Amino acid sequence: MIDLDLTSAMWRKSSYSTGNGGICVEVATVRAGTGIRDSKLGAASPVLAFGHDAFARFLDAIKGGRLGR
């Protein structure tokens, strides 16, 4: 993970969120990378921060079923 400045980022609900039972994540993309946070906690949520290449690999792993639930 990297340190991203997400203070002015525009967060959006991820298209991968189920929307059921509050199981949603928000995603924000800035020049240096992408952040992911829990939508229930909003700005108080811890953020997973990725560089662009690492985020692309993360999404590929999710889509390919290589990450457990």
Rank of each mutant, 00 (worst) to 15 (best):
L41C: 14
G42P: 09
A28F: 05
A32N: 09
D53E: 06
L41H: 14
G35S: 08
L4E: 03
L48I: 12
R66W: 00
R57W: 00
G19E: 01
V30Q: 06
D53K: 06
R66C: 03
G64W: 06
R37I: 10
I36T: 11
G51L: 02
A28Y: 14
P46L: 11
V47H: 10
D60R: 11
D5R: 10
L6Y: 01
R66P: 09
L6T: 14
G64R: 09
A54S: 05
D53H: 08
R57V: 03
T7E: 13
A49W: 06
I2N: 00
A9S: 11
S15V: 05
T18H: 12
R31A: 13
P46T: 12
I23P: 08
A56M: 01
I62H: 01
S8H: 10
A32Y: 05
Y16C: 00
R31W: 07
C24S: 12
G64I: 05
T18M: 07
T34M: 09
L59I: 09
L59V: 09
M1G: 02
R57N: 04
G68D: 01
S8F: 04
L48N: 05
G33I: 08
D3N: 08
A56N: 00
A9I: 09
Y16E: 01
L48E: 02
A43K: 15
I23S: 13
G35V: 09
N20Q: 12
L4W: 03
I23R: 13
V30P: 14
I36S: 10
W11K: 14
A61F: 02
H52R: 12
G35W: 02
G21L: 11
L67V: 03
W11H: 11
S39M: 15
A61R: 09
I62L: 03
A49D: 07
S17W: 07
W11F: 10
M10Q: 14
V30H: 05
F50G: 00
